[in-house]
Amino acid sequence: MSDELLRVGKLGKRFGGFVALDNVSLTVRAGERLGLIGPNGSGKTTLINCITGALFNDQGTIHFDGRDVTLLPPFQRARAGMARTFQIPRPFRSMTVLENLQVPLEYAARGPSGRRAVDEALEVLEVIGLRERAQEDSARLTQIDMRKLELARAMAAKPRLLISDEAMAGLSSNEVDDVLGILRRLNDTGITIIMIEHIMHAVMRFSERVICLDAGQIICEGTPQSIVQDAGVQRAYLGA
C-alpha cells in the first residue's frame, strides 16, 4: 500500500442530465507511467479536472498520498504535489515566460523567492528548450511554445504527480520525441506521470499501463499490448 500515490474511488460527475463520469475507480503507484486514452468526450479531461480540483466531483473520493483530498481546493492539491497541463494552453498572459514559472515555484513548490527562484525557473526552461524565450511575453508565443510552457509550468511546481493533458498535440514527430524524453527523465527522478494523449504510438511507447475511458466509464485497463488488442477499445475508437 505504501507505494500507492493516487486512489480514485467510485468517482461520479454530472453536468445537468449528462453523465460525464460514472463510477470511475483507479489507483496509480508512485513512480508509475500511466496512459489515459479514450475517444473525444469520453471524460478524460473531466477526470483530471476532478482529480486536480478544478471541478468538484458529485460522488466518490480522491486520495493522494494516503490523504483524502476530495474536498480540498485545487491550490492545496497543487501544494500537496499535483501538477497538470491544460489541453488548451492557459498561460498567464500578462507575464513573461520566466514569470509564468515563478508563480508555481513560489506557490505550489513553496520554493525560494527572488533571485534563486529565477535561477530555478531558468533551469526548467533550459530543460524544456525555452531558455532563450525567458523574457518574452507569454501571450506572444507560438502555439507550440505555449504547449512547452504549459509543461514547464507544471514542472516548476515540483510535483510528485504530473498530469499531462494532450501536451503533444500539434507537435512534430521530433518534438514529440523531445517531450517524451523529458517526461521519461522526470519519471526517472521518481515523478509519477499520467499522460492523456491522442497520439497513440506515443502513449503506447511511454506508458507502463493504459486505461481506456468511454462514455465516462473505464472500459479496459492493462499493458499497452493488451489494450491494443482489446475488442472494446477498438469498438470505442472505430465506432463499430
Partner: peptide, 18 residues
C-alpha cells in the same frame, strides 16, 4: 505575482498553487 496570476487566469492560478 499571485494577484496577477488570478487576473490572467484564475483556474490556472489555483492549479499553480495560488
Amino acid at each position: 505575482r499571485g494577484l496577477a496570476a488570478i487576473r490572467d487566469d484564475e483556474v490556472a492560478a489555483e492549479c499553480a498553487g495560488v
